[in-house]
Computed example of a mutant assay.
Amino acid sequence: MKINLKQIFNIVGEKKDFSYEIAPEEFGDIKGFSFGSDVSLSGKLYNRAGVVYLDYTAVFKLLHTCDRCLKEFSREYDLSFDHIVVPSVSNDDNDDYIVADGESIELNEVALNDILLSLPTKVLCREDCKGLCMVCGCDLNESQCDHLN
């Protein structure tokens, strides 16, 4: 969703609320991630004292494979993000702000980047997952084998 920020940049106190869904198909080409639901975004853009802020939450479900026992499971996420949005920056080496290209931002792209950077690198089906036996491959969460002794 492309949001035009011209009015928000120019008027102190101006505010724009948003709430919409992104279909999982829009994120389908991201290797290693499978969205199990729409990504629900809701938040606001506002100008406080001449500085434009973006605050929003992303609610979604991801389908995972446990890194220890290889079971498939789904997990819900409710993540919050906040950014400062600027019309331009003087150098290209900038990770502190979102730069509005032509006084607008592509919110889907911002949200996708935020989501991917916030997800854990190691995903377990449960905190105490025992994994698989290194000898016979049985799931140690469901049964015991003689190889552990």
Rank of each mutant, 00 (worst) to 15 (best):
D101R: 01
I11V: 14
R75T: 08
L62F: 08
L54I: 03
R75D: 11
K44C: 09
L140I: 04
Q7Y: 03
R48D: 10
V85K: 08
N113W: 03
V39N: 12
K15D: 02
G102Y: 01
K61Q: 10
R48Y: 06
H83M: 05
N10F: 01
G32F: 12
D17P: 00
G36M: 08
A49L: 07
E14C: 04
V51R: 10
E14H: 03
E103P: 01
K15E: 14
N47G: 02
I8Q: 05
D139N: 15
Y97P: 00
N108A: 11
S37W: 11
D82T: 05
D95M: 05
I22T: 02
N113A: 09
C138L: 12
M1D: 08
E103F: 09
T121M: 12
L119S: 09
V12P: 01
L70M: 14
S19G: 14
C66R: 10
F73H: 10
D92E: 15
D139L: 05
H147G: 05
S74A: 14
T65C: 08
A23I: 10
I30D: 12
Y53E: 10
L62G: 01
V99A: 02
G28Y: 02
N10K: 06
E14D: 12
A100M: 01
L112P: 00
D128S: 14
G13I: 05
I84F: 04
E142Q: 09
F27P: 00
M134G: 04
G13S: 07
G28L: 02
F73I: 09
C69S: 07
V59Y: 07
N10R: 03
N47L: 09
D92S: 10
F33N: 06
D95K: 08
G50I: 06
G13E: 06
I98R: 03
R68M: 11
C125Y: 14
G50S: 08
S34N: 11
S90F: 07
F35D: 13
D55V: 14
